[in-house]
Design a protein around this nucleic acid. Sequence first.
DNA 1: GTGATTGGACAAGTAGCTTGTCTACCTCTA
DNA 2: TAGAGGTAGACAAGCTACTTGTCCAATCAC
Lengths: 156, 156
Amino acid sequence: MARSRGAELAVLLLGGFHTMVDDVQLELARRGHAGVRPVHEFALRAVDAGADTASELGRRLSVTKQAAAQTLAVLEQLGYVSRETDPEDARRKRVRVTPRGHELMTVGGALFDEVRDRWAAQVGAPELDALQAHLTALVQRRSFSADDLARFDRES
Amino acid sequence: MARSRGAELAVLLLGGFHTMVDDVQLELARRGHAGVRPVHEFALRAVDAGADTASELGRRLSVTKQAAAQTLAVLEQLGYVSRETDPEDARRKRVRVTPRGHELMTVGGALFDEVRDRWAAQVGAPELDALQAHLTALVQRRSFSADDLARFDRES
DNA sequence: GTGATTGGACAAGTAGCTTGTCTACCTCTA
DNA sequence: TAGAGGTAGACAAGCTACTTGTCCAATCAC
């Protein structure tokens, strides 16, 4: 039974994501950022973009605040964020990205770009640009990256 | 901090996969196949393609045989596969896709194709064909779908 | 035949999420 | 200004899908 073109496409999309992430993660580990999962890096970006409490991060990532708090606990333990009580609202603990966290974001972004460059060399830059533009149009209704990332986890 | 084009692409790939799968899964549930996760459908295809024991399925999906056995137990409970001892090798329990299982594969494939058709209508059929062809070239080193799917799980 | 390999099963552990519950704190309004 | 309702965070228990470890029975290779 031949698989449908549609199912093939779905697998390719996931495979493509996975290919990129695996490459990046391997290289991140070599550069002193072992144990970082995709969700970590994207959660970090969300924090940096303003989701500076567990509850808010949970909303952005479409997970419960408890799950977000767990992610933040990991990020804190790895030294990527710090937490301090908010002087203006004693309920809150404000989360801030540490210098090491920013370094991870910078290095991670650069590594993703490197993978993309290799891809561009393989299929042609205009073709890859078109691919990305089309995907953007097709996926635009979806938020930030949200629960997509929340659902992508396990790591080697 | 602007996200890198590379990281954007990664998110788009995952988002695209997720968009397709969500649509298909919703419709499958409406058609009497509630509770089916992507890994189920793809495991079913692997079984149908010859991975007819738990150990072999585990190898194909890059998970342990125990994990594969658990997936098969779910598939069996949902009526998509049946298991019987192999008369030629008393260690084995041969797994076969039931008629209901084949129906799931057929319907699922058609639903994926429908999503793809909608996408083709949105960005143009030649453009989508090109996108898929390029992705195929970029991802070709990866196996079947393998651990990509094994890592994609949780469902609403 | 005997040792190594394989398939399947059982058990325990892990990771990351969930829901539920609780307390402390803030905000809005009568 | 008191009290109702909402929000932030923490703790606990439970779920799911995976893992590793162990075991036994059947088969294979020499």
